[in-house]
Write a protein that binds this DNA or RNA. Structure first.
Length: 103
DNA sequence: ATGCCGGCTCAGC
DNA sequence: GGCTGAGCCGGCA
């Protein structure tokens, strides 16, 4: 499988995340064969803008934003969608984590 | 081919 | 609940 294919799959999964919901790297990775959490990260790093991929809805298993810099943007976008952060800058995964089943 | 570095995660303390 | 260490799968020099 080429990297482009894998990326495409990752994007396809991420696109399923509805507004106001989030998913973890591991969760997304579980949907893509031969793909670990970090691969999701590297894939998202290369998301083409305007591709309609809500990359900002992907966060780490602790409900925090992993991105190195520019986490401001990600946080702002999530808050704009109605995903609140606590004092520690974390999201309540219990409530906002997206599950494919429930959708 | 090798080795090091990730937008991580999970098991143990 | 937080910190640590090891595992993980690919990307890139």
């Amino acid at each position: 499988m080429s990297t482009t294919d894998r990326n495409a799959r990752v994007y396809a999964v991420v696109r399923q995340i509805p507004e106001g919901r989030v998913a973890t790297y591991g969760q997304v990775a579980a949907f893509v064969e031969r793909c670990g959490p970090r691969q999701v990260g590297t894939a998202l790093r290369a998301v083409p803008e305007g591709a309609g991929v809500p990359w900002h809805r992907v966060i780490n298993a602790q409900g925090e934003i992993s991105r190195r810099g520019g986490d401001f943007l990600q946080r702002a976008m999530l808050e704009a969608e109605g995903v609140p952060f606590d004092e520690r800058g974390r999201i309540d995964l219990k409530r906002y984590r997206w599950s494919p089943e429930a959708d």
